[in-house]
Amino acid sequence: MAEFTVNAQRFDPYKNFKFRVKWDGKYVAGVSKVSALKRTTEVVKHRSGGDPSSSRKSPGRSEYEPITLERGVTHDPEFERWANKVWNFGAGAGVEVSLKDFRKDLILEVFNEAGQVVLGYKVFRCWVSEFQALPDLDANANAIAIQSIKLENEGWERDTAIPEPTEPTFVEP
């Protein structure tokens, strides 16, 4: 198990608005929202024959919630390319799906206010189960067009190789 050192100078928790997502070794452009990383473990209840008045609980199967990524609509085709590996309308009868390389591992990095990486999570064997190319369009609205992908995954783990950085001290002029 990795050892964690604690930065005694930092008392505030990290903010949730400084992050980046990476897959295929490249940062993904414009991701503005990532849903929570959540794991749920089933509870298996059982009783012992000699103790009929109460049940015991043990951990069962663990499930990882899908992760949703959102970003503003641009010309960058990465969301659509990945989604098309699972289903590509118009590719021709019998070749709509190519499951050869539809899974990807991704990295989620969280930064402090100084722009230093403070946390990282590796998410394993992701694939696109839902793709929204365009939102509802409304000529009377004042909003950014958002596209999203929903990623099924087979688990995640914290990248313990990322140490807590020593935050810079800013000197007043």
Rank of each mutant, 00 (worst) to 15 (best):
N142S: 09
E70K: 12
G92Y: 12
A145P: 12
V128T: 08
V28T: 05
D12A: 14
G30H: 13
S48N: 11
A29Y: 09
H46D: 07
K26I: 00
Y121D: 13
A91E: 08
V21T: 07
L99R: 14
R61E: 15
E130M: 05
K150R: 10
P13D: 05
N88K: 07
W156Q: 01
V28H: 01
S53K: 10
V28F: 00
E152G: 00
E70R: 04
W127M: 14
A36S: 13
A114Y: 13
P168T: 04
L119F: 12
K26Q: 15
T40S: 09
T68Y: 02
R56Q: 14
E172N: 10
A8F: 03
R61M: 14
D136G: 05
A114M: 11
V43G: 03
W156K: 00
T41R: 02
R61V: 15
V110S: 07
K18T: 08
K104M: 12
V95F: 07
F4K: 00
G30L: 04
E154Y: 06
I162R: 01
V86R: 07
S55D: 15
E167Y: 09
A139Q: 07
T166D: 15
V73G: 03
K22M: 13
S48W: 03
D136V: 02
R20E: 06
F79G: 01
S48K: 10
S55T: 15
V128C: 15
P135C: 04
S98Y: 10
G30V: 11
G92K: 13
F17A: 09
K18I: 14
R103V: 08
N84A: 11
D105T: 07
L37C: 04
S35V: 08
L37W: 04
W23G: 09
E65D: 11
V128M: 10
S53M: 03
L37S: 05
S55Y: 10
P168E: 15
A83Q: 02
K100I: 05
S54D: 14
E167H: 10
E152M: 14
V118W: 06
L151D: 05
N153Y: 01
S32P: 09
I144E: 14
V21N: 02
N153K: 01
K22V: 07
S129Y: 09
H75Q: 11
T68N: 07
S129I: 13
E157P: 00
R71W: 01
R20A: 14
V31T: 11
I144T: 14
P59L: 09
K57T: 06
I162H: 03
V110F: 12
S98A: 09
C126D: 08
R103Y: 05
A36Q: 12
V110T: 10
C126T: 10
V28R: 04
T41E: 03
R47H: 11
Q116H: 12
F131L: 07
L37Y: 02
L106C: 10
Q116F: 08
F102H: 11
W156M: 00
H75N: 13
F124T: 02
A2V: 03
V44G: 10
D12P: 04
Y27N: 06
I144Y: 13
E63N: 05
E164P: 00
D76H: 04
L99F: 13
N84T: 01
K33Q: 14
L99S: 14
A143H: 02
F79D: 01
E172V: 15
R71G: 01
F4H: 03
W156Y: 02
P165I: 01
E167V: 05
E63L: 06
N142M: 08
